[in-house]
Design a binder for these strands. Structure first.
Length: 478
RNA sequence: GGCCCCGUCGUCUAGCGGCCUAGGACACCGCCCUCUCAAGGCGGAGACACGAGUUCGAAUCUCGUCGGGGCCGCCA
């Protein structure tokens, strides 16, 4: 048994989406868990749809997720190049070979003609696939069609019979060749189609296991046929259940966030996204749900991947993210939150990073995404405006409260949480107020909000000078 | 329309013939804790699509019905 070699082969037609990320993850986990190699291949044979910026975006998202590849763009490897647009001659050569052996034949039908016939077939309830019109053209007929200026595409001549294979996830799957139709392997412009390019590359790159979405299940018998025609041994196949939206429809933009990068910007942790994605179609024992990437590597198993489409549930992802955030050390939390503060225009010069780290334990359990951090900690870095609720609380506060608080805090010897709490509770009790009635106005004055990290810690963190200043400002407004 | 795949709480799932009065998680509801918001603790509601069959016994096996999805492109 040779080395396991798997590949993730995205087409650069958009950002990496969560479905693709899950496919990449399963491939990666399988490779890492079996001491194999994870190969990244860019399927950019269609110049119409492929764009360089998407290649960059996909690589960046994979890197952010931490799914590193052993062979592929930017890292090289012995079976490159790893971009199909750089391998076009190879595909043309293989296609030519098949044609010479009579296993493929030129088809002169134009896309418009094919489309018309498809429609027609569909309208009378027949199968819309290729009708085999050019399958048995004579040399003369071909010449005549070429004289018309038609540039042929190359179609694979599907032989009679049946192709069966054992899918690791689905078990025995079987297709009658009668339902396959002769498919195009080389477009009339000389570019290969997916069916050919993927088959050629899977063979040349010695791929041992193809792990991909269920949408490609019907492509499998065709690729096996091609592989066999080329004298290559087909790899093992594992077709993952599709990811769907809350409405059970295929996951798409209209469900909102589908791109991995959106989740990065929204403050999701890559480890949380990966953990959640791992569970979308796979489970360990149905009870344990939280795993580190290392644990997933040793526990993941294709045999335990389910067969039914899984609905992507952002709420559950968010719950995973919230717990992952709480597990972070204070320093790590601060490091990860920093870009979000900067993005919100909160510069952290001087001792800012230290403040952020000290605030980490206070905010960690109050946010489920990093993009919620800035609004909670803003008061530590800038003089903000009171929000509407804070405004109201201050307006309705007992008039004697703030002056008493000011006096109590001004007299504090050491500016420390315990002392601050003692002082504030004393004021609260002396004025005969409930804790809430006393503390909410203080919170509003000091943090500009009615929702904030715990009051005493917030006051300590803010420091004596700024706290007193804010209390005075609030008093002056009355 | 044809072919293929799939069907356990709203969602992700455990279950691979008796351990199931079907377990866990998210979401939801209630209570507790509490300086706000959270977090946390405790409790609750909530599913085997349906119908036959096999069997002493079926969520688990078989068939059918119904339902959902994928593919049928010179996209991948």
């Amino acid at each position: 048994m040779g080395e396991v070699r798997v590949r993730f082969a995205p087409a650069p037609t958009g950002e990496l989406h969560v479905g693709g990320a899950r496919t990449a993850l399963y491939n990666w986990l399988f490779a890492r868990g079996r001491g194999g190699r994870f190969i990244l291949r860019i399927e950019d044979t269609d110049p119409e749809r492929s764009r360089e910026e998407w290649v960059e975006a996909i690589l960046a998202s994979l890197r952010w997720l931490g799914l590193d590849w052993d062979e592929g763009p930017q890292v090289g490897g012995d079976f490159g190049p790893y971009r199909q647009s750089l391998r076009l001659a190879l595909y043309r050569e293989k296609a030519e070979e098949l044609k010479e052996r009579g296993l493929a034949y030129p088809c002169y039908c134009t896309p418009a003609e094919l489309e018309a016939r498809r429609r027609e077939a569909l309208s009378r309830g027949a199968s819309p696939g290729y009708d085999g019109r050019c399958r048995n053209l004579s040399v003369e007929e071909r010449k005549a069609l070429e004289r018309e200026g038609r540039r042929p595409a190359l179609r694979f001549r599907v032989p009679p019979g049946r192709t069966s294979f054992r899918d690791i996830i689905r078990g025995e799957v079987s297709f009658s060749h009668e339902d396959l139709e002769d498919f195009v392997i080389l477009r009339s412009d000389g570019l290969p189609t997916y069916l050919l390019a993927a088959a050629v590359d899977d063979a040349l790159m010695r791929i041992t296991h193809v792990i991909r979405g269920e949408d490609l299940l019907p492509a499998t018998p065709r690729q096996i046929l091609l592989l066999e025609a080329m004298g290559a041994k087909p790899p093992e196949y594992a077709h993952l259940p599709l990811l769907v939206g809350p409405d059970r429809q295929p996951l798409s933009k209209r469900h909102g966030a589908t791109s991995v990068d959106w989740y990065r910007q929204a403050g999701y942790l890559p480890e949380a996204l990966l953990n959640y994605l791992a569970l979308l179609g796979w489970s360990y024992d149905g009870v344990r749900e939280e795993f580190t990437l290392e644990e997933l590597v040793s526990l993941f198993d294709l045999e335990r991947v389910g067969k039914n489409p899984a609905a992507f549930d952002m709420d559950k992802l968010t719950a995973f993210n919230a717990r992952a955030l709480r597990r972070l050390s204070d320093a790590e939390f601060a490091r990860r939150a920093l870009p979000f503060l900067e993005r919100s225009g909160l510069g952290l010069e001087g001792s800012g990073m230290e403040t952020l780290e000290r605030a980490a334990p206070l905010v960690k359990e109050r946010v489920s995404r990093l993009d919620q951090v800035p609004s909670l900690l803003e008061f530590l870095f800038i003089e903000a405006e009171y929000d509407e609720e804070a405004e109201k609380v201050l307006r309705e506060a007992p008039p004697e409260l703030l002056p008493a608080v000011l006096e109590a805090l001004e007299g504090l010897g050491i500016w420390e949480r315990g002392a601050i709490e003692a002082a504030l509770r004393r004021v609260q009790q002396e004025l005969g107020l409930t804790p809430r009635a006393a503390f909410q106005p203080i919170r509003a004055a000091v943090t500009f909000r009615t929702v904030s990290p715990p009051l005493f810690e917030s006051v300590e963190l803010l420091g004596r000078e700024r706290t007193l200043k804010r209390l005075k400002t609030a008093l002056g407004r009355r």
